[in-house]
Design a binder for these strands. Structure first.
Lengths: 412, 412
DNA sequence: TAATATTTGTTTGTTCATTAAACAAACCAA
DNA sequence: TTGGTTTGTTTAATGAACAAACAAATATTA
């Protein structure tokens, strides 16, 4: 009665990420015949054929020769052609701009990162980003890869459809249209998404959460941001804002958070909590003496330096990291109870201290979640690490292609 | 490329609740012409006509005479015909079974509730429920209303597609097929859903959350259960379990919860917290003397009695309810931050003390959520109160009809 | 008053994703 | 040789939607 295919201007934009994802996952885990593909997707052979036809036509999927110790007629085996094209992923963040060039197999072929500052004026940052993108494009062209599109991840409220950044609090940017100018400038399809959502997309398509029915991506950095994906679709929240999971209150008597409340999760258990605790205890326990691995002056202590000190064996830092891990694990347990996902993927700065955080985080989460919620759930680290957002941005492009293959001449 | 309309056996079942909901909301808020409807829905007049054609054919929408101080040709005005049929909603819960008969305008025409006990054997409870359903059917038939279907809300893990209750921890039931036997017995389409999800559906279609893009329904009773709806679709969670939001940890040093952890939200701030606190303070402050409105013996104190005592002016009960309200508000603030919904709807036992809980709950939630998350969000009480689940179950039927009108002869 | 513009609902044809069913090709086993 | 099985394609059909044209009924304007 009421159908879901709509024109671009229609309101409903229910996307079949699941089918696209399934297609991608199946093709990735080995060559399949059209018939095998159809069986996996629950579609007819005719439909499966028509879906891959476009991908084959675009050179993104190739047929290899038969190799069939089976019964019937040998089929043509299909597999992804990584050389079929490349997608550019842009992670335009507060402190840096990172650009990757990924092939159609989602392998990062090239990456580059420029430091940045929220104090720099917007045009400067944009110009710097454009230069990085151009270099990525040159790299792709040098490899002879067709440009499939450009994806951009931004730390703020994004209008996905229009490709506009509505508001980025940490950058203090407002109403910035990226899609139109950049699509024109680089002559490629352009996709814009919130950073956490983009990273989640990357983990879903090509990372730790590959094919998960429902999962939560947590970006544990200065803040704790989250993105929720259910049945292959991003649950964006009413205003499209990424889940501000970090401001879940975990202790009514906790520390004061930047948001003005007390005991927010990101203040109690994030990297900033680690920094605060280390500084306080250095003062208190060692009278300001700085252990190996940490910067000379206490003001310069940041999370990476704590991670280094822990790696070098500092007991205080390891202790603090364990506390942080436990706090994060408790929060993840709540998330398991609330969302009941298949998987929780942890990304962000916290992974720099992965060995001292993740084991305890995982065990705490599993032990403290309800049995039904924990059963079958997996808590794990991001596969893309610091590249998560950029790779995810590139994944936006590939997702689009799996959903509706864009043939060269039909690109608009 | 990849389409969302699937046959019943297909895996993807993306439903256009939004369009169905829009249709219902538009028709409800006044008579519309086909053209006006089309404009509201963003469809062509032809498409809108074809959608309502089936509803008109089934007698669920009627045309009224023109009344047009407009410009062009006067149109036939369409409106919902409440008399077009009835849906039966069943709330099969732990302590009671409630059945309602709602007309196509979602008005509850008849309701009945039988007390029940989880100790009763399953066949007894089912037989009791069937008797209630039969009475509801008789009522509907007596009113001359065509039976559109039966919806059932259950407190547990439900397989929506098969209409099977997989597991209900509080009832200790497992693998109960309700759809097939009841659909056959009552000769009507049957829909089964988790209780919180059903209630959310009811609020979305016919209650406080009418047409909200994203909202969270909280059932605050013995436990705190939740259901999340985004873009008109229920976010079921990986295993379809309703969000166990009640086990979000809000205080690491809190009370021991039934789940074995400390400081779960439902233990810190739910009705059970109110009961515990009142009992403790009666002991401590008044030496066991029981104030007006409360049962004679402290063991018999339950949440409704506290609500009554508060209504009669008891200061202790009011104080405890205020504390509970603040705790609930804090949790709702977290929910606003996490999900960024348009709306949070509170239902369940807690509403019996509504006047002493809701104002403080609302203000606490709004003040403690992030500004971006709180802006535009509304926290409000369920419109259906104790009927929420049963009305929601009936809404399942109406939802199905709005999505794909079932013509009498095509019922299967 | 006549002509024109506006709005409504229908009809007719088209598109698009998909299925169902029929085929032809290729292979294996008895 | 004769089936049986699997594969990929072709053909026709379906169902939801749109576009465009049309006829009817009203309002506005010349």
């Amino acid at each position: 009665m009421i159908n879901a295919n709509k024109k671009a201007d229609g309101k409903a934009d229910v996307r079949m990420h699941n089918t696209a994802m399934a297609l991608r996952a199946i093709l990735e885990r080995g060559p399949y015949s059209r018939a095998g593909l159809a069986k996996e997707l629950g579609l007819t052979r005719a439909t499966a054929s028509s879906i891959v036809a476009d991908l084959i036509g675009a050179g993104l999927v190739v047929e290899s020769e038969l190799e069939a110790p089976k019964k019937g007629r040998p089929g043509m085996l299909l597999k992804i052609n990584p050389e079929g094209g490349c997608a550019i992923g842009v992670d335009l963040n507060v402190n840096y701009v990172r650009v990757v060039c990924a092939d159609f197999g989602a392998r990062v072929l090239w990456e580059s990162k420029d430091p940045s500052s929220p104090l720099d004026p917007q045009p400067i940052i944009l110009e710097r980003t454009e230069r990085l993108i151009s270099r990525a494009l040159e790299f792709g062209a040098g490899r002879g890869l067709r440009l499939l599109g450009i994806g951009v991840g931004l730390p703020g409220l994004v209008n996905r459809k229009l490709g506009v950044l509505d508001f980025a609090p940490n950058l203090k940017w407002r109403d910035l249209d990226l899609k139109n100018p950049w699509a024109k400038k680089f002559k490629a399809p352009l996709f814009v998404e919130n950073e956490a959502n983009a990273a989640a997309m990357g983990e879903y398509y090509f990372g730790a959460a590959k094919g998960a029915a429902g999962f939560v991506y947590l970006s544990v950095g200065v803040g704790i941001g989250g993105a929720v994906m259910m049945d292959g679709a991003l649950c964006g929240g009413a205003s499209g804002y990424a889940g501000e999971i970090g401001h879940m209150r975990v202790d009514p008597n906790g520390e004061l958070c930047g948001c003005g409340r007390r005991g927010c999760w990101e203040t109690e258990a994030g990297p900033s909590a680690a920094v605060r605790k280390v500084k306080a205890r250095l003062e208190e326990e060692r009278g300001g003496e700085v252990p190996a691995g940490l910067p000379g002056s206490p003001e310069d202590i940041d999370f990476p330096s704590i991670a280094r000190a822990a790696a070098e064996g500092d007991a205080l830092c390891r202790e603090v990291l364990a506390e942080v891990a436990a706090g994060l694990g408790q929060g993840v347990a709540s998330i398991l109870n609330i969302f009941n996902p298949d998987m929780v993927v942890i990304g962000g700065e916290i992974l720099e201290a992965g060995p001292y955080v993740m084991p305890l985080l995982k065990s705490t989460a599993m032990e403290n979640a309800l049995a039904q919620a924990a059963r079958g759930a997996v808590v794990t680290e991001s596969l893309h690490g610091p590249n998560a957002c950029a790779v995810g941005a590139a994944a936006l492009v590939l997702d689009e292609i799996y959903n509706r293959p864009i043939l060269p001449e039909k690109m608009e």
